[in-house]
Write a protein that binds this DNA or RNA. Structure first.
Lengths: 357, 357
DNA sequence: CGCGGAAATTTGATCGATCAAATTTTGATC
DNA sequence: GATCAAAATTTGATCGATCAAATTTCCGCG
């Protein structure tokens, strides 16, 4: 038996195509009795409307696009991983599909937009970052293409809230601040910060959160001496950690899990006494390192880390796009165009590695 | 100006739609002079054929589907990441797009197949694993849907080569065997194996490769005593590593990077002397751990690891699918239905963590 | 000059849905 | 039961491409 279509079902039921179409798209227009009868046959025949035919007429593909970035360092890639999964799930729940594509550069990405828009008729795009003076967002806006960005724009001077496009982001500063508060509550006072060397605003924000919370906790006097920067690698964490420990830090908040892994190693070697188990959270008794992104390695090592709520971010991005696509005609709550989510600190106890014998 | 279509271009050029269509799909049918003229206008107008319209007629969506597994199951983080990227890239190069979807279970996955086939008209699927007596592969075969699997089927007793569906996989045994050969060449003889506890065939194969190479290198006498199993976590690696070290292993081949990270930690603590730098590869001088999958953490820690050629695997999978979809009518080399790729060992020098002062 | 066949091009139908407008049915009211 | 508006349903056109078949153009050759 061939795949059922509106026409074949109409013949079987003795009604017109349009009635069946209405049952699915505007049930209120159809008399309840007919509706039931039609629905029963749709069910029995396993009818599914063809997206291609529908797209041809409605100019909606129910398809969103996202560029898959070239694998960066990968440890931090895990955040994108979770984001991608959550995005797929949210999109699916909203009746959209997600199409992936690759690009060599931002210019190439724009070229892909153009092709995917025309050929596949994608309804919108998700970007996983934006840069100052971004060619991509500019192109998308000029062409009236719906899109949303995971990551706020950091255009010099301008507050992100004034951005002319939709974005969702995680408040990194709030994350490091919460980490400091947590550590201070445990009795730490010499809490260091280990960040990145590049002057990127994301890293600056994480440092700023640490500083703010230090001052708020009355530990402002340590701020000048306990902030370090290193390359974003494990060995960068080792050397940065060594320096901070030399300055008597008992706890370190890091801008990434890579750095934190290195710093943890370092603490383990230089201050083994601080890892004595059995005395939970006594002041100064247990050294602590907090990473950022809560990657699987962090979890495996028992490293505390600031976890980004990427699932919430993905859900909101899908909501933004679907609302814009639906034309959201006066229908109640329009989702926030600019949303800053608070991360939370996942607290863990480091793996005991000391040899038994 | 509205988006150009075949009809609009035809009007502009004074030829018929079909001629333009032929220029793109069967250039040989069109007189060279006309072809050039048409191509010039296509270029100038930036014409792109609508995939939806084409799909409606040809019943090809040029779209492949893949389920995004929940984080833990199947191939994990970084390998999946690289595979997905390579797959997207290969598909794109072949003129296909990649659509992602989620599913709660295998049964749900089958349901998604059915919907995606009917609604979106996907042309084929990529699976990232298969199990004995797999409902998904059975369904796909029964419905004549093209698909290919990354990971060979391990049906009890039957050789994977007899499988009735296309697959590509990496020869794990060859990987661990090469690791052993490399270590033996460096002068190690007490080379241990640290594997998983579950009796899964993938893990068994990795162990088998170790054993085979041990015997081939004349180290068969160590096989009985130097094989361990532990849960696939870092702490599993620590405890397994401790035991192997207690049995005087100087090198350890692991079934995963998680295990290897743990084992490396352990070696570092229990045999710090074996990490003396400056004496490269003298027998017994440098302890060695080899992981599996070459994840970013491994790279960051300077851990040697067996790297899967996932890019090659993805490329072949796309080739398999596109050939089947193209109907491959007598056109030369049909790609191998069953392809086993050899991984390679990436050799690294562990990060020096010893404190300077 | 006209003929035949290949080459080049065009025409009409079709894929499967939705839109917009036309038509039929329903049901309340006098 | 006739009337009319509202409700329910149907009809015809359309989205933009390809297929299959028909038509026109081209060109060599008798």
């Amino acid at each position: 038996m061939a795949r059922p279509t509106l026409a074949s079902l109409a013949a079987e039921l003795g009604v017109s195509r349009q009635t069946i179409s209405n049952v699915l798209n505007a049930p209120a227009r159809v008399k309840p009795a007919t509706r039931e009868r039609v629905l029963a046959v749709i069910e029995a025949a396993g009818y599914r409307p063809s997206a291609a035919a529908r797209q041809l007429r409605t100019r909606r593909s129910m398809n969103l696009g996202m560029r898959l970035l070239p694998a960066t360092d990968g440890i931090n890639g895990s955040v994108l991983d979770r984001f991608l999964h959550a995005l797929t799930e949210s999109a699916q729940a909203a009746g959209y599909r997600l199409t992936l594509f690759c690009a060599d550069s931002d210019d190439d990405e724009v070229l892909q937009y153009e092709q995917l828009l025309h050929i596949a008729g994608l309804d919108g795009f998700i970007l996983t970052s934006s840069r100052p003076d971004d060619v991509r967002t500019r192109w998308l806006q000029e062409h009236g293409t719906p899109f949303a960005v995971f990551g706020r724009p950091w255009d010099a001077g301008l507050p992100s809230e004034s951005a002319s496009h939709a974005w969702v982001d995680v408040d990194g500063a709030a994350g490091t601040a919460e980490a400091v508060t947590m550590l201070a509550r445990q009795g730490h006072s010499r809490i260091g910060f280990l960040g990145w060397q590049d002057g990127a605003p994301v890293g600056d924000a994480r440092r700023a959160g640490w500083e703010r919370a230090m001052r708020a906790s009355g530990l402002g006097q340590h701020v000048p001496g306990l902030s370090m920067a290193a390359p974003d690698t494990i060995s960068g964490g080792v050397s940065g950690g060594r320096e901070l420990i030399a300055r008597d830090a008992t706890a370190i908040v890091c801008a990434s899990d890579s750095l934190a892994i290195g710093a943890l190693e370092c603490l383990r070697e230089l201050r083994p006494g601080l890892f004595a188990p059995g005395q939970p959270a006594g002041p100064g008794l247990r050294a602590a390192v907090v990473g950022f992104d809560d990657t699987p390695v962090a979890a495996a090592l028992g490293l505390s880390s600031v976890a980004q709520p990427v699932e919430d971010a993905a859900r909101h991005i899908v909501r933004l796009l679907t609302c814009e696509l639906a034309g959201n005609a006066g229908a109640g709550a329009a989702p926030e165009e600019h949303l800053l989510l608070a991360p939370r600190v996942v607290e863990r106890v480091p793996l005991p590695l000391a040899p038994r014998g």
